[in-house]
């Protein structure tokens, strides 16, 4: 299969690549650009470990081909914060121990940032009782919206506590 040229804009920087069109966005990040903060847990859209933001919205990067993302703004965990300058959500995960092995963690954090934005923008979810009103910042809403991100270490209670710390939301 002949390669295609694509420029991926990741965390504000352009990366010109020549890629096999079968390469997923996830593998482009991990194997070609060595942004290995984005994880592969299942490669089939079932775990959320590969969550990144594309034009501000979260997607499973294993379910999309890299060559489809010319011109998109892609944000990964590396663009959110660094160990020295953590994003508030990363800091909250650290303080609340919202992880154990850390493998699902970048995906959880990217999702968590997006979830708060979705609630803020009034996007309803499966558990939004009144879709005419802005969704509440409840634990129920957050849990529902985070449910595409599996954590086998089962850090769920601590992850919700971390998100609550950042959002200022109550149960």
């Amino acid at each position: 299969m002949s390669d295609l040229f694509v420029t991926l804009r990741i965390n504000g920087t352009d990366h010109a690549l020549s890629l096999d069109p079968r390469v997923t966005l996830l593998d482009a990040l991990r194997e070609h650009l060595h942004f290995t903060g984005t994880k592969k847990g299942c490669d089939q859209g079932q775990c959320g470990a590969c969550t990144v933001l594309v034009n501000g919205r979260r997607i499973n990067s294993c379910l999309t081909l890299a060559v489809m993302h010319e011109g998109d703004e892609i944000q990964t965990i590396e663009g959110l914060g660094t160990p020295e300058h953590l994003h508030p959500m990363q800091q909250a995960f650290l303080e609340r121990d919202g992880y154990q092995c850390g493998y699902c963690t970048p995906g959880q954090i990217m999702s968590a940032v997006a979830v708060l934005d979705e609630i803020e923008r009034g996007v309803p979810s499966h558990v939004t009782h009144d879709i005419g009103a802005p969704p509440p910042l409840s634990d129920e809403e957050v849990r529902e919206r985070m449910s595409g991100n599996l954590c086998r270490c089962s850090a769920y209670p601590n992850i919700i506590a971390a998100i609550r710390d950042v959002s200022g939301g109550a149960a």
Binding site: T76, T82, E95, D97
Partner: peptide, 20 residues
């Protein structure tokens, strides 16, 4: 806090398939 925690939450810890 976990000593390797800041690097874990920043996606900077290399797991086996990510080793360079």
């Amino acid at each position: 806090n976990r000593t390797e925690g800041p690097r874990k939450v920043a996606g900077q810890v290399p797991y086996s398939a990510e080793r360079r």
